[in-house]
Every structure is written in structure tokens, then in C-alpha cells.
């Protein structure tokens, strides 16, 4: 299954490095990243593949969100199906 990670907050050095390291540690592959910095606000959406991770999806989501808090970012990790069901017919 695929998940969508959204990140928003004040830009600083090492955001992508830290978050992609967490993905790698959990054996989670990153399929795509779109990222922009607008007036010092960092925004990013990552599409990741969580199928091969041994960790429960909710625990991975929590780990990401906590890493976000430490860096002053708001991070959401959600199942791709939620967005598909809402925005695709």
C-alpha cells in the first residue's frame, strides 16, 4: 500500500535528510517527492510505499509526526486510499 506524507513548517537544514532516513530505517521506499519553499515556509508531499515495512503503519505515522514536532513541522501520514476515495470517481 502507498501512503502520503505531507509536511509543512518553517524551512531549516536537513528536513528531507531526516525524514527520508526514517523511511529508510523502516524499509519504506519513496516513490515521489514534490517540494517547495515559499517565503521561508517549507512544504512537501512524499508518496511512499509502506508494503515492505515490518512496522505497523500507525506506528510509522507516529514516528514521522514526532520527528516533525522536534523540527517545528506539521507532518501528516495518511493512507493513499483516503485521498483516492475523496478525489477520484
Amino acid at each position: 500500500m502507498n501512503a502520503v506524507i505531507s509536511v509543512i513548517g518553517r524551512d531549516c537544514v536537513g528536513i528531507i535528510a531526516r525524514l527520508s532516513a526514517i523511511c529508510a530505517e523502516n524499509n519504506i521506499n519513496i516513490n515521489d517527492i514534490t517540494q517547495k519553499v515559499l517565503h521561508e515556509t517549507f512544504t512537501m508531499i512524499m508518496w511512499v510505499e509502506v508494503r515492505s515495512s515490518e512496522k505497523h503503519f500507525a506506528d510509522f505515522a507516529k514516528e514521522m509526526e514526532e520527528a516533525g514536532k522536534e523540527m517545528g513541522l506539521i507532518i501528516h501520514v495518511m493512507h493513499e486510499d483516503v485521498f483516492d476515495s475523496m478525489h477520484r470517481i
Partner: peptide
């Protein structure tokens, strides 16, 4: 592929 604003809308 889903677009940025759709994703942010759902999260909001």
C-alpha cells in the same frame, strides 16, 4: 497522481 491542493484539502 493526486494533486497538492486535493491532499491539503483532505488533511484540513
Amino acid at each position: 497522481m493526486l494533486n497538492h491542493s486535493d491532499i491539503m484539502e483532505t488533511i484540513k
